[in-house]
Each structure stands twice: as C-alpha cells, then as structure tokens.
Simulated scan of single mutants.
Amino acid sequence: MKNYYYTLACAIMAFGLISCSGNENKETTEQTTAKEEAPKKVDAVSIWDGISVRKEPSSDGKWISSISLGEKVLMTGKTAVDSSEDNREYVEIKLGDDKQGWVVSGFVVEGTAVAAVREAQIFKRPDLLTKTDKSFNPMDVLALIDTKDEWVEVKGKRQGDKWFSSGWVKRTDLSDNEVDIAVAVYAQKALAIEEEEKRIEAIQEILENESFTSSQFMVDLKDELNDLNSDEEELMAEPTEEMDSVEMEEEVAETEEVMSE
C-alpha cells in the first residue's frame, strides 16, 4: 500500500514539473514572438528637400519640422495609410534631435547619403553590359541602398529632373563625406538661382564658410564663380565699347563740319 501511495506521489510531482516546463516554454515562445513582431528600426536618408514632418500620418496633421535633402533619420518601422488621400502611405521617423513624426513614404529611403563627385553612369544591374542612357550629375545627392563589389545601388533625383532615378553606379563616382554632401546640397540651391547677382552671392557664401573648406566641390564652385564674374565683366565692358563707337562717330561728324566750313 505504501508503494502505491509513493508511486502516486511521484507521478503527481512529475506531472507538475512537466506542466511548469510547458508553461515556461509557452512564455518563452510568446516573448520570442513578441520580439520578432516588434517594428524594425533602420537608418534612412531623405532624398527630397523640404519634406514636411507631421505629428499625425496625414497632410492635415500638425506640422513639426521639415527635413533636408541628404539628412539622416531613423525609420521606426511603423507605417500608416491615410484613406482620405487615396491611401497615401506614411512612415514614422525619428530626427537627429529626437523629435518623431510622420512623412510621406518614398521620400525617405533606407540607406546612407552619398554625393556624386563626377558624372556617374547609371546601370540597370551591377554589370557593364546593362548601361542606361542616364547619368547622375556631379553634386547629385543620393541614397546608397546596397553594395556589391565595386558597385553600389543608389536612388535619388537628378538635378533638373522632376522625379527619382535609381540604378547601379561605380563606387568611385561617389563620396560619403558629410562635408561633401552638405556642400552639394547648398550648391544645388545656389546654382538654381535664376538671378545672376544673387547666384554669385550664394556661391560666395558657400566658399567663405570655413566649415566647408575641406570639400572637394570647392574647386568646382570657384570655377563656376570665376565664369560668372567673367561673364559679368564682359557685359559691363560692352556698353563701354558702344560708347567709344558713338564718341568716335561724333568726333568724325565734328571734323567733317569743320572741314566743310
């Protein structure tokens, strides 16, 4: 009889241990699942200048700030769709000052910022046989998405275009230097100014900024400024030549009058 009770007690204890172990495994599985379902935070970069950051994922949301072309942000992994705007998709981001908000999806891309240092031929794939008829221009600011050997996949807006281009380019055609990227952004704005006098002032402001002296684009901007100043000098010289011509005609006319007398 004692053996019977002893065996029964052991069975009950074993069942209890198995149940506890099962609960622990279940809790561990639930924790693992919850961890896997947590939004993935990734580094990203803005490929459009002046994108609005809003408190809510809607164009009616409270405006928080705007982000610059080439600015680094953190995508929190959260997304939302605004059904009132043709199902426009938004992504949540975190700025460098820790402010968080929503931006329209597509204008912020997972990756890092780079700037084209020369004309960069665009290829469909990382293969010389897939050349396209497009190239990125010097000082185009892009998002570097992926790398493969000496190739990199990028996306961004070419200067003068209305929308994005993407593809593969040679790594040597790009710079990931923060100063180069900053100068490229400011230079794009300066060179886009239509009024020549204001364009010259904007370029001079970049050249005189001590924070930018290490950029390899400074030489290009100096050349651009010299060309603009040369054009301005030529324009100023043209009226003088016209005046000289008028004065000569007047002198000839006066001489003819004297001779006729």
Rank of each mutant, 00 (worst) to 15 (best):
Y4D: 12
T7K: 08
G22H: 10
E24W: 13
E27T: 05
E30A: 08
E30T: 14
Q31D: 12
E36A: 09
E37K: 13
E37A: 14
P39V: 01
K40M: 07
K41F: 11
V45L: 05
I47R: 00
W48G: 03
G50N: 07
G50D: 08
I51E: 03
S52F: 13
R54T: 15
S59A: 09
D60F: 08
D60A: 03
G61N: 05
I64M: 04
I67D: 02
E71H: 06
L74V: 11
L74K: 06
V81D: 06
S84C: 01
S84N: 10
R88Q: 13
V91M: 02
K94Y: 04
K99A: 09
K99W: 15
Q100C: 05
W102Q: 02
V104I: 12
S105R: 04
S105Y: 09
V108E: 03
V108H: 02
V109A: 00
E110P: 03
T112A: 01
A113L: 06
A113M: 04
A116P: 05
V117G: 02
Q121P: 06
I122K: 02
R125A: 11
D127G: 01
L128V: 14
T130K: 01
T130E: 04
T130C: 07
D133S: 12
N137L: 13
M139F: 04
D146S: 07
E150S: 00
W151I: 10
W151T: 12
R158H: 07
G160T: 10
F164I: 14
S165V: 12
A184H: 04
V185I: 13
Q188G: 12
A190M: 03
I193W: 08
K198N: 07
E205I: 00
I206G: 10
E208K: 10
T213A: 15
F217C: 04
M218V: 15
D220V: 13
D220S: 08
L221K: 01
D223V: 14
E224T: 15
N226W: 06
E232I: 03
E233K: 13
E234H: 08
E242V: 15
M243K: 05
D244P: 03
S245F: 01
V246Q: 04
T255I: 09
T255K: 11
E256W: 06
S260T: 11
E261I: 07
